[in-house]
Lab assay of single mutants.
Amino acid sequence: IRKQWHEDITQDLRNHLVHKLVQAIFPTPDPAALKDRRMENLVAYARKVEGDMYESANNRAEYYHLLAEKIYKIQKELEEKRRT
């Protein structure tokens, strides 16, 4: 379902936000690492998460909020795993 606010969101912005999700899960300073085949699954997962939020959000603010919440949860989980 195409929503009115979707018209304001460019593909570049969506790609940028997918990249932010990927960085939250696997922070790497090396952009070449993103071309690694093992990263493809991670990028696919991040695209799916972003797509789900894009579809479920009712406006741009909610879209950003859902993504920020997801990134926060991912970082929290990773922190907890590092501690144990």
Rank of each mutant, 00 (worst) to 15 (best):
Lys35Glu: 12
Leu34Lys: 12
Pro29Ile: 08
Arg37Gly: 15
Leu21Arg: 01
Asn58Gly: 06
Leu34Ser: 10
Gln75Gly: 10
Gly51Cys: 13
His19Trp: 11
Leu21Ser: 02
Asp36Leu: 04
Asn15Phe: 00
Thr10Ala: 03
Leu78Ser: 14
Val49Gln: 07
Leu21Thr: 00
Tyr45His: 07
Asn58Met: 04
Ala24Ile: 00
Ala44His: 07
Met53Arg: 01
Glu7Lys: 11
His19Tyr: 12
Ile1Glu: 12
Tyr64Arg: 09
Val22Asn: 01
Asp52Thr: 02
Lys35Asp: 15
Ala46Thr: 02
Tyr64Ser: 04
Tyr64Ile: 09
Asn59Gly: 07
Arg83Phe: 09
Leu66Asn: 12
Asn15Trp: 03
Ala46Met: 03
Leu78Glu: 14
Glu50Pro: 01
Gln11Lys: 03
Gln75Met: 01
Ala44Asn: 13
Gln75His: 07
Leu78Lys: 15
Asn41Cys: 08
His6Met: 04
Gln75Ile: 13
Pro31Met: 10
Tyr54Thr: 03
Ile25Lys: 02
Arg60Ser: 12
Gly51Ser: 12
Thr10Trp: 00
Arg60Asn: 02
Arg2Val: 04
Ile74Gly: 08
Pro31Gln: 11
Tyr63Cys: 01
Ile1Phe: 02
Asn15Pro: 04
Lys73Arg: 11
Glu79Thr: 08
Arg2Glu: 08
Ile25Gln: 13
Lys35Gln: 10
Tyr72His: 11
Lys76His: 13
Glu69Ile: 00
Val43Gly: 02
Met39His: 13
Leu78Trp: 14
Ala44Pro: 00
Ala61Leu: 06
Tyr54Ser: 01
Val43Gln: 06
Glu79Gly: 10
Ala46Ile: 01
Arg47Ile: 02
Gln75Leu: 01
Leu21Lys: 00
Ala68Val: 07
Lys73Trp: 09
Asp12Met: 00
Trp5His: 09
Glu80Met: 07
Val18Trp: 08
Gln23Ser: 08
Glu40Cys: 04
His19Thr: 11
Tyr54Met: 00
Thr28Met: 10
Glu40Thr: 11
Val22Pro: 00
Leu13Lys: 05
Asp8Trp: 05
Val43Phe: 09
Lys35Gly: 13
Asn15Thr: 06
Thr28Asp: 13
Asp30Cys: 05
Arg14Thr: 03
Gly51Lys: 14
Met39Ala: 03
Asn15Glu: 15
His65Asp: 12
Glu40Tyr: 04
Leu78Asn: 15
Leu21Asp: 06
Lys70Thr: 03
Val43Ser: 03
Asn41Thr: 03
His6Ala: 05
Glu79Asp: 09
Arg60Gln: 11
Asn15Gly: 05
Asn59Tyr: 00
Arg2His: 11
Val18Ile: 09
Arg38Val: 07
Trp5Lys: 11
Phe26Asn: 15
Thr84Trp: 06
Lys48Arg: 08
Asn59Gln: 02
Glu62Pro: 03
His6Glu: 08
Leu42Ile: 14
Lys3Tyr: 00
Glu80Leu: 06
Tyr64His: 12
Glu62Gly: 02
Trp5Phe: 05
Pro27Lys: 07
Ile1Trp: 02
Glu79Phe: 00
Lys76Gly: 08
Thr10Glu: 06
Lys20Thr: 05
Ile1Tyr: 04
Tyr45Val: 06
Tyr45Asn: 01
Leu13Val: 14
Arg82Ser: 12
Lys76Asp: 12
Glu77Met: 04
Val49Phe: 04
Asn59His: 00
Val22Lys: 04
Tyr63Pro: 01
Asp8Leu: 06
His16Val: 09
Leu66Pro: 01
Ala68His: 15
Val49Glu: 04
Leu67Gly: 05
Pro31Thr: 09
Gln4Val: 07
Lys81Gln: 12
Gln23His: 14
Glu77Trp: 05
Ser56Lys: 15
Thr84Glu: 13
Lys73Ser: 11
Ser56Gly: 13
Pro31Arg: 09
Glu50Asp: 02
Tyr45Cys: 03
Arg82His: 10
Val43Ile: 14
Leu13Glu: 15
Arg83Met: 13
Gln4Met: 09
Asn58Arg: 07
Arg82Glu: 14
Leu13His: 11
Ala46His: 00
Gln4Arg: 10
Lys20Gln: 11
Tyr54Ala: 00
Arg14Pro: 02
Val43Asp: 03
Lys48Cys: 01
Thr28Pro: 05
Lys3Thr: 05
Arg38Lys: 12
Leu34Trp: 08
Phe26Val: 13
Gln11Thr: 05
Glu55Gln: 08
Glu80Cys: 06
Lys81Glu: 10
Leu34Ala: 11
His19Ser: 11
Pro27Gln: 11
Lys70His: 08
His16Gly: 12
Leu67Thr: 04
